[in-house]
Amino acid sequence: MAPVKISNALKRYGTVEVLKGVSIDIDEGEFVVLVGPSGCGKSTLLRMVAGLEGISGGTISIGDRVVNDLPPKQRDIAMVFQSYALYPHMTVAENMAFSLRMKRVDKKTADAKVEQAAQMLGLGSLLGRYPRELSGGQRQRVAMGRAVVRNPAVFLFDEPLSNLDAKLRVQMRAEIKDLHQRVKTTTIYVTHDQVEAMTMADTIVVMRDGKIEQMGTPIELFDNPSNIFVAQFIGSPSMNIIEGTLGPKGFVTSDGHVLPAPQSRAVAKSYGIRPEHLVPDPAGIPMEVVIVEPMGSETQLILRLGQSTLTSLVRHRLDVVPGTVMGFSADLSSVHLFDQNGNRCVD
């Protein structure tokens, strides 16, 4: 276990800058999720921490050591890859013991550690099998076992669940979180899936174009997104954003509709409301229902207001036919206002 400190990390390929000075302080035992669209530099940053990519500028330290010039094996890290990268010619036990063999740990100790890790992950009966004989979830668990066996200072996960089907993903998500709660090893986890980020992270780092957009706890990011990008990236379905201007009576959309909004001294140019906060209200603003998507317990509605399209997520079943005009309203406290640069308006 060790803290990880990334200061002003830069990565250049030739003249292209893929990381433009990223700083993150990770406490001992913290679970940090790097999230962002593909190409945002999150995987590159993880690979720089692992030592698989060189560092073009800044420093990365693990514990109290600057690791910039250390090869992966001297960094005391373990990594779980997207494809799991299990050695196909070795059994599960051999896969897990490989790093110990490289460290010349004697066989008895190594066997005991493998046994212990296998117990923890429920791999006991699979130790003699080869990776090709395992299911996706089992492979995932072996990859984690390989990391756990070494008892490293830091766990690195590179989109470990993206090769699993939806159901298994939910299950493995819980298992990874459970593992972290038991071993309490500092963890950096990369994903493009905001649900994974929300459910697993102590701290989420939202990245875009090689820069950090916002860093904070899942609830902070959800409640107080610092800009439109984060607001739309976190939460599903994503936040409705409507262009317009904030006036004394409320927010006036570009085609003249007036939406109730909290007063602000800042000049707000965008109005944001999460679909689940836009609720049917006979006294609300009339909107035309364009598409109805019943999902069993919930109903998702695509609405039209002038030229704007909005989404509403209703937490119950709703019998309504497309073309119906219904009233909708939102609690003022759930309205987000952004300025012309897309940043959150602060009073």
Partner: peptide, 9 residues
């Protein structure tokens, strides 16, 4: 030293 290493490349 760590200081020198911070100079990019």
């Amino acid at each position: 030293s760590p200081d020198v290493a911070t100079t990019p490349q």
